[in-house]
Design a protein around this nucleic acid. Sequence first.
DNA 1: TTGAAAGCGCTAACAT
DNA 2: ATGTTAGCGCTTTCAA
Lengths: 360, 360
Amino acid sequence: MRRRRQAVTIKHVAADAGVSLQTVSRVINDGPNVRPEMRQRVQASIEKLGYVPSIAAQRMSGSRSYMILALNDRERTIADWKLRQGTDWVDQMLLGGMLECAKHGFRMIVELVDTHSDHIERELGAAIAALQPDGVILTPPHSENEHLTFLLDREKIPFARIGSRGPGPGIFLTMDDEGSAREATEHLLALGHKRIGFIAGPEEYSLSNWRIDGWRSALEAVGCDSTHLCERGDFGFASGLIAAQRLLDLDDRATAIIASSEQMALATLELARKRGLEVPRDLSLISFDNTPVVRFTHPPLTAVDQPISETTARAVKLLIGASKGDKLPEETIVVSGKLETRGSTAPPPAPVGSTSCSAG
Amino acid sequence: MRRRRQAVTIKHVAADAGVSLQTVSRVINDGPNVRPEMRQRVQASIEKLGYVPSIAAQRMSGSRSYMILALNDRERTIADWKLRQGTDWVDQMLLGGMLECAKHGFRMIVELVDTHSDHIERELGAAIAALQPDGVILTPPHSENEHLTFLLDREKIPFARIGSRGPGPGIFLTMDDEGSAREATEHLLALGHKRIGFIAGPEEYSLSNWRIDGWRSALEAVGCDSTHLCERGDFGFASGLIAAQRLLDLDDRATAIIASSEQMALATLELARKRGLEVPRDLSLISFDNTPVVRFTHPPLTAVDQPISETTARAVKLLIGASKGDKLPEETIVVSGKLETRGSTAPPPAPVGSTSCSAG
DNA sequence: TTGAAAGCGCTAACAT
DNA sequence: ATGTTAGCGCTTTCAA
């Protein structure tokens, strides 16, 4: 095999600047005990020679690897990519994560791991052993996988858990699911809706339940009964169809529906169309995910925008800080999304029967 | 800083198996000169201890880094991510590239580089020095940037040039732009169109011209005149609008338009709507990019599907081969896309004036 | 404040 | 067919 050597190494810089390797190393790492003039001199040599440290060598000598690993669910991610429906979760992670990494001279590496695998720790363990990342970002459903969090905790690798509030080790970040659900619900209440159905995500995701909490608390605040207006889905289209059916089959059918995922929102829209319900005239609809497609449906959907990019950037920043010795935040970091109001929400149709709610 | 050491190293494995480091190394790298039983024994120890080689160490000792760098245009990529219109170029690259990498124990690292930067080589040089990738994938417009190709050639790093046909160093891959343009044009000819306009991309991209060639050759094959029916855009929406205007302002206006990018196709659709032209009744439209949104427009657009994922996978495979000493292909690799026929193409409206074409 | 020496985990080159 | 040796480029001791 051809042997590729570093073009410019710390040695060249040291020789050029007339100092020891160690001094160069100190300059590179912003270390203490270097006189400003020395620092200057070394910096000049670095620029002149175009020196860039080898990450491999830095990692080898027990320092950082300058890599942050972003773990996503393999099955879902690949399915999304193949479907080509515009789901841009990974892109948004890259947008926030890569750019934040770049600011600090780090790289973000995307890795897919299979949740359902019984040797999931092996997968992560292999990635860790191979790459020795300075930090790991866990996204749902991995963020609450104890096999993973245990391993990372044991290995003392700083890690962020997006979509988890703890307890346990790691940095917790959420996109304020409860607040966003509440805001969405309040938007519908303000329009005059009283029977606001909610299609929740699977129980395995804590955030599914936080969203239910937000929806419920908004309803309860105005004295609405909500017990029979919540259905579960699995975030997928088919499950959304079933859930929407139930909500629209009720005697006192929902006049508005909040769906916990883009796919379930699309399913609801589809069902409405099939049943001759016009959105938003006969049914208001909110998608809990402001993906590209929801702007291209008819009508475009009012949607909860999840600040994926910003959340990832925050996670990266904290992880890089942690790798430099900063203390981890104790509290859950909450990055709030906002409601994008579009054409799928409007006042409810004129009431014909009894209402299950005293508000309005 | 906390010093993180490899949990299980080649030493542990060697000790456990009772062999030398070198033998373990040979087993890891599928090297020659190892008796099957030895190999077995070492493998067993590897499994037992859960050993995974450190990429940093492998790279350090002059071997491979097991990393492929995928270079994309910074400005455009970030703009696409921020717009959230569903452009999934990067996702498709990841789909093809990451998965192919994974098959061989490699990782793909996405890197953004600014085309317009005057120190573009420095950016790439830094990435190379830091990561020491075993291969680099250049996407347009980088694939034809001589600063980059010169640097990579000099550094003897295998690199693939997607969307370039050479000449020059590197592996050339195209998505058969000419063939796809021809196919799209033939589709319209078969429907009976004679005045088929073409909105081309900027001249800086060779593929822009290949597409023109394909369109033109299809027209010429049936004796159609094409001289005045080609307009240039820059792939962006605004430029598409202007180009479409010109094509529709002609005395003998185009009855069909092929737009060289999703954005220019959307612009054309928008303009048609504004002018009261119904697609496809009054105007047929083909998008040269089968991005997610083109399925959600009204009508959904007939589109040329570019096999980004497959092309990237091919590039990765060849690069990994090259890093193992395989000879690079001399010929340009052509991965053909296909035409996705949807609702935006139909027979032309009944002719009212003269035709500029004798075919049909 | 600076420098010298040791070693990180692995592989290429050279023994045997 | 296997083992030994000498680094790779860098940072961490430790010494001056």
